[in-house]
Design a protein around this nucleic acid. Structure first.
Lengths: 190, 190, 190, 190
DNA sequence: AATGAATGAGACTTCATTCAT
DNA sequence: AATGAATGAAGTCTCATTCAT
């Protein structure tokens, strides 16, 4: 009854197997797109038998939800760390600039995965929960340094600038970002 | 009535065939996602034989390029019309607000198609030309009413707010948009 | 009768499935030519689902290699048996004559398959290994009864006479073969 | 009625068009094999409209017959020239050696086309006439220098040696050929 | 006489999922 | 609990041929 008696067969039980699969899934999506993601390819990359896929996950949708949940957590955690490290208003502004200038552009993988998720969420409400929680986390992180409205606007600005810089052909400087952040932050009139 | 006699035989030569297919393709992408878009489904919706697909288009990629080219043209044209209609600075600001508040959210189809294109462009540089020309057109339209830097920032803001409003669970008011645009536009004080 | 109850369900696990497919493949090639050989036709003849084809074989090339490997083995084995059965020099000569006169002409299937393989090998080096090993085996079998040079020349002669007799319209007698073999074998006198 | 009246439209009438197509067909067969030969590919290489194919030729079979007829004529003509140039018995022997050593091996194209034709003829009797006339022409050319039986045997030997040398992995010297020819020719003081 | 447009059949291959073990 | 074997559906694409002009 204890594990001992089944030691030999236990070899098969790999608690990290699920995790391996999820990681592999994110990599496949990043490399081939959602349209190019199949059980086979994920299984091959994760080096698990094809049969494992439908054993560990109900189906593709199940796997995708898990994968994007992990992805969002990674990204949001780093975002929070960036913002939390900033203590003065000036540092906070610089942190926002750095996020736009370095974070997403730095990693092709994250750029692609973000868009795949957005696309999924745009069509399928069952993914809306994920994008929503992502936005809530980043907004909350911003709210620790900015007032709620400014936080919301900065969040949107980060999104827009990131996308436009990623999908443009020409390269743009950092100055533009600094100016944008400054305008949003400088509530003015006040 | 007279048409009937020729209708059946005329079918062979249909100069609008290509257009029909492109339209159908966009609809299929909007409905089922790029991953769910196949020659078969597009052909079925366009009511053309399957063989027509690779006759009129080199392959899926060719078709997608054509489809998104048309999509972008539609969207950009409307954007330009909105901006051109604004004559005073106040109207220009209101136009930008309206674009965010009404245009994209208004149409599920456009929301989805935009994201599918972004996703494509994020991975495949051959679609970068499309997104790039789209951005250039909207920026140029904005530059008729705002200075170049402001135009670029507004363009990014439109993007970010549109996405966040579309992918959020809660609904947000128009006031937020007005404030964001105002902050970006109100360069002054400097 | 008893088989019936399991026959239907047993079908899933058939260890001879691969072999059946290979056999069917050779038959289809012989009947319709390489140009007329398709997964569909082979699957139909082997009475297996189409999906089996690419499950058991990487692709058409894989299948063809396996099929011709088997074909060569059959032919070479018989060739070796013919030669090994001859014990005296006279019997050896008669064996060579018999091979030309009876073996290949006897079977339309083998004639066609040989040529299909030659054609393949002429263009694609990856089949050269097969033809090469075939030639090596027949030459080695001949070398048990003849000196190496004579063996090589006899091998070529067998090839040439076989082809010409097969592709000629008029029928030719056995006498011609006997004379040819005699001339090649009768090295001496010199 | 005369050509003059239709001068403008005559441009379309290209008497060499058929020839171009036949040449292109041979090249496609040599490059891609019979299995890879299609109206489309031939038309593309010949730079003629696809519709031309079924206009000028009844179908693929018609085209293939024409193509191989031309091919055989080319090869046989050169063979005859080689043999006719030899005036003494010694030169005749050397000519045969040269044919084996240089002619077929020299040209990948001819090697492949020969085998494609053999394969066709092995299965389809309607091509047997072509191979037959080919063999008759080469045999007749040999008979101008050798007695009929020796001519026939030499012809077969040429065939066999050519094939074995082409499809072997190792390279073989010319000496082997000389010896083979010598054995066949030296009918023996008998 | 000649051809561009069009299509239905069929080519190979990939896939998610089922099932027996 | 876990998986290798298997398959039917569907994927993209190529093809020979027909037809209207």
């Amino acid at each position: 009854m204890t594990q001992n008696s089944t030691a030999v067969r236990t070899r098969r039980h790999d608690p990290e197997r699920r995790d391996h699969i999820i990681d592999a899934c994110l990599t496949v999506i990043a490399d081939r797109g959602l349209a190019g993601t199949s059980h086979r390819r994920v299984a091959a990359l994760a080096d698990v038998p094809l049969g494992s896929m439908t054993y560990h996950f109900t189906g593709m949708d199940d796997l995708l939800h898990e994968a994007f949940t992990r992805f969002i957590d990674e990204v949001a955690t780093r975002f929070e760390a960036r913002m939390d490290a900033a203590t003065t208003p000036e540092e906070a502004e610089r942190a926002v600039v750095a996020i736009i200038d370095q974070d997403v552009l730095a990693s092709h993988r994250e750029l692609v995965l973000s868009h795949e998720l957005y696309t999924l969420a745009a069509r399928d409400p069952s993914y809306r929960g994920l994008t929503d929680s992502w936005m809530r986390r980043s907004r909350r992180a911003l709210e620790r340094r900015f007032d709620p409205l400014t936080a919301r606007l900065l969040d949107a600005l980060i999104e827009g600038l990131t996308i436009h810089r990623a999908l443009a052909t020409e390269t743009r400087g950092t100055e533009e970002i600094r100016e944008a952040v400054a305008r949003i932050v400088r509530t003015g009139g006040r």
